[in-house]
Structures are given as structure tokens and as C-alpha cells.
Simulated assay, not measured.
Amino acid sequence: MNEKNNEDRIEWIEKLIKYSSDGDEVINSLVGNLVNYLVKKEVIEIEDYLDFTKNTRDVYISNLKKEGHDEESNIVNHVKKQFNMHINDFEK
């Protein structure tokens, strides 16, 4: 493979990562907005929701570890990051 093809491939991968990351941000914003709406309409209580969400995070991580992923694996870190960002949005 020549240098031009490698550069094109790297550029494509960088764009893919950016679009994926941007998509995560949009989804996180939409979920946060929905939770805020449900709290304001008194459909859910934020403390109960946060407890449930923390428990769900811990179950996901436990299941990943049972599948052989260690504490520092990319997938475990990603799950922690996504859940913790969401939880932190409401604990402030």
C-alpha cells in the first residue's frame, strides 16, 4: 500500500471516530433532556433514577468482567465514562 492510500485511510478513520464521538454527545444530550423532562413532570424522582443508573452501570461492568474484560479494558472504561458523565450531569 502506498503512502497516499495510508494517508487516505488514516483521514477516513479520523473522520469516523469524530462522527461517532459527535453522535455519542448528541445521544447523551437527548437522554439528559428526557430525564430532565421526566423529573420536571414528576414522573420520576432524580435520586431514585440516579440510584438505578448507578446500579445498572455496576451490573454492566460486572457482566463485562465475567466475560473476561479487565478493569482497565477499553470497553469497561467506555461504559464507566458514559455512565459517569450522565450521572455527573444530575449530581451537580
Rank of each mutant, 00 (worst) to 15 (best):
Y60C: 04
N5E: 06
Y37A: 07
S73F: 10
V59S: 00
S29Y: 14
N6V: 07
I13P: 00
N84S: 03
L64P: 11
V31C: 08
K92H: 04
N36G: 14
V43F: 10
V59N: 02
V39L: 14
N28Q: 11
V26R: 10
R9T: 15
E3P: 03
V39Y: 15
L64I: 08
K41F: 06
S62N: 08
L16R: 03
V35C: 06
N33D: 11
Y37D: 10
F90I: 02
N28V: 00
I75A: 04
N33I: 02
R9C: 06
I61Q: 08
K4C: 00
L64S: 10
S29F: 14
Y49R: 01
K81H: 11
I75R: 03
V31K: 10
F83R: 00
Q82D: 11
D48R: 04
Y60F: 13
E45F: 06
N88L: 06
K54V: 03
I13G: 00
V76M: 05
S62T: 09
I44E: 10
H69G: 02
D24W: 02
L30V: 07
E67F: 03
K40P: 01
E91I: 12
H78C: 10
V43A: 08
V76W: 00
G23C: 01
E47T: 13
F52C: 01
I46G: 12
S29R: 11
E67P: 02
I61D: 04
K92N: 11
G23M: 08
L64E: 02
L38R: 15
N74H: 05
I44P: 13
G68K: 06
E71M: 00
H78A: 13
L34N: 03
T53R: 01
I61M: 04
D70W: 01
E42D: 15
I44V: 15
I27K: 03
V26T: 12
I75Y: 03
D70N: 13
V59I: 07
R57L: 12
S20K: 14
E47F: 08
V43M: 12
S21L: 06
D58R: 05
Y60T: 07
F52T: 05
Y19T: 07
H86Q: 15
I27H: 07
G23Q: 04
N63L: 08
I10A: 13
G68N: 05
H69F: 15
G32L: 00
W12E: 13
H69I: 01
K54S: 01
E14W: 01
L50H: 09
W12P: 00
N6H: 09
R57V: 01
N84K: 01
S29H: 12
N2M: 06
N74M: 13
D51H: 05
V39D: 12
F83N: 00
D22T: 07
N74D: 12
V31A: 07
N55R: 11
F52Q: 08
Q82P: 00
D8P: 00
L34Y: 05
D8H: 13
L50I: 08
E91S: 15
V76S: 01
V79D: 04
E14L: 05
D24Q: 09
V26L: 14
D48Y: 05
S29C: 06
